Simulated scan of single mutants.
Amino acid sequence: MLNIKDLSNLELPKQENYEQALKIGLEIFDRRDPGRVAEKAAARFVGRSVIIPHLDKEIILNADTHRFSIKETDEEAPIWLAILAIHYLNNADGRQPTGKLKHFREFKEGHFYEPAFNRQTKDVLVSIFGSDPAALVNAGKKLHGKILETGDAAVELSYFPCMPITCILWKEDEEFPAEATVLFDETADIFFSAEDMAVAGEMSVLDLVRASRG
């Protein structure tokens, strides 16, 4: 069982070169019409900025300067989030989620990252919310998630407009320990590689933890 104090030590899957990944993504973006890109991604194009809803916030990409910022604070977005955002924009083709959910391991190469993914998603959900499912629901609401009627608590988070992530929790009882799962829509691999999905899933869970403490 993960101890709460271990949360500060969680690490994301290693990108070989974050700067290079972002550079390549922006080069692809620059070859396309930003307004059309935003439309296909269910984002907005205002002035020269693409505005992408992200959980309870919005990410702004300035098409000219390539700066990624958080609208609510105007702070620069962390590079891992910028990479996820540019991959989402570049890969969006207008398709919407189907509602059919899949486990991380069911996607191509998901099994390579599954042990670390489970430690930093399922184990965290169980450690923080296993005895208090209502706290997961409340945290999900703070992140503008959709509360689902499954398990003992479940929330569908809109990580990006066409990229939902679903967290389900079953509370502990006298017979069984708490259990949790993090699921993706079957269309997730349109937007993300398994590595990207791992980062998005892990950070979604950490956002829920932060929201539960706010």
Score class of each variant (00 low, 15 high):
Met1Gln: 05
Leu2Tyr: 02
Ile4Ser: 00
Glu11Trp: 13
Leu12Ile: 03
Gln15Ile: 15
Tyr18Phe: 03
Gln20Glu: 12
Ala21Pro: 07
Leu22Gln: 10
Lys23Pro: 04
Lys23Ser: 06
Asp30Arg: 07
Asp30Pro: 05
Arg31Gly: 05
Arg31Thr: 15
Arg32Leu: 07
Ala38Leu: 04
Arg44Leu: 04
Arg48Cys: 08
Val50Met: 02
Ile52Glu: 00
Ile52Asn: 03
Leu55Met: 02
Ile59Gly: 02
Leu61Thr: 04
Asp64Arg: 14
Thr65Met: 01
Phe68Thr: 11
Glu72Gln: 14
Asp74Ser: 06
Glu76Tyr: 09
Ala77Gln: 01
Ile79Val: 03
Trp80Lys: 15
Trp80Cys: 09
Asn90Tyr: 03
Asn91Pro: 01
Thr98Gln: 04
Leu101Trp: 15
His103Ala: 11
Arg105Ala: 08
Phe107Trp: 07
His111Gly: 06
Pro115Tyr: 02
Thr121Ser: 14
Asp123Glu: 13
Ser127Tyr: 08
Ser127Leu: 12
Asp132Ala: 00
Pro133Glu: 02
His144Tyr: 12
Gly145Thr: 15
Ile147Ala: 12
Thr150Ser: 06
Gly151Tyr: 02
Glu156Asn: 10
Leu157Asn: 10
Leu157Lys: 13
Tyr159Ile: 10
Phe160Thr: 01
Met163Asn: 04
Thr166Ala: 10
Leu169His: 09
Leu169Pro: 05
Lys171Cys: 06
Glu172Ser: 04
Phe176Tyr: 02
Thr181Ile: 14
Thr187Trp: 04
Ala188Arg: 14
Ala188Phe: 09
Asp189Phe: 11
Ser193Ala: 10
Glu195Arg: 15
Glu195Ser: 09
Asp196Val: 15
Met197Asp: 06
Glu202Val: 13
Glu202Leu: 11
Leu206Tyr: 15
Asp207Arg: 07
Arg210Asp: 09
Ser212Cys: 08
Ser212Asp: 07
Gly214Phe: 10
